[in-house]
Simulated scan of single mutants.
Amino acid sequence: MPNWCRGNLVVRGTKDNVKRFLLENLKEDDLEILEDDKKLTIRSKELIFIDGTTRNFIADDIEFNFASEEIIKECTMNEFMAAWSIAPEPYIQMSREYEIDIDLCVVEIFRGFTQEIRIQKGEIIIDKVEEINLDFRGGDGEDPTSFNEDLSSDDWKPSSLIDDLDDLPF
Rank of each mutant, 00 (worst) to 15 (best):
K73D: 05
D37Q: 09
I72E: 06
Q93I: 15
I86Q: 05
N56P: 01
R55H: 12
I48A: 00
Y91M: 03
L165M: 14
A59R: 12
D150G: 08
I72Y: 04
V106H: 03
D155P: 07
I117V: 08
K128V: 08
E97G: 06
F49C: 04
K27H: 10
S85K: 12
R12Q: 12
L104Q: 05
S160H: 14
I109F: 11
F49V: 00
R96H: 11
I109C: 10
E69L: 14
D36Q: 03
E35H: 04
D37S: 10
I109V: 10
P158Q: 11
V18G: 12
L168C: 04
E108A: 01
E32Q: 11
I126H: 05
F64I: 03
K39A: 00
P88K: 10
R20I: 06
G138C: 05
I71D: 14
S152C: 03
D30Q: 10
D143M: 06
K73M: 10
D37A: 07
I62D: 02
R12F: 13
M94K: 15
R111N: 11
N8R: 13
W4T: 10
N148W: 07
I119E: 07
E35F: 02
V18I: 15
I71Q: 15
G141K: 04
S146G: 08
D37P: 03
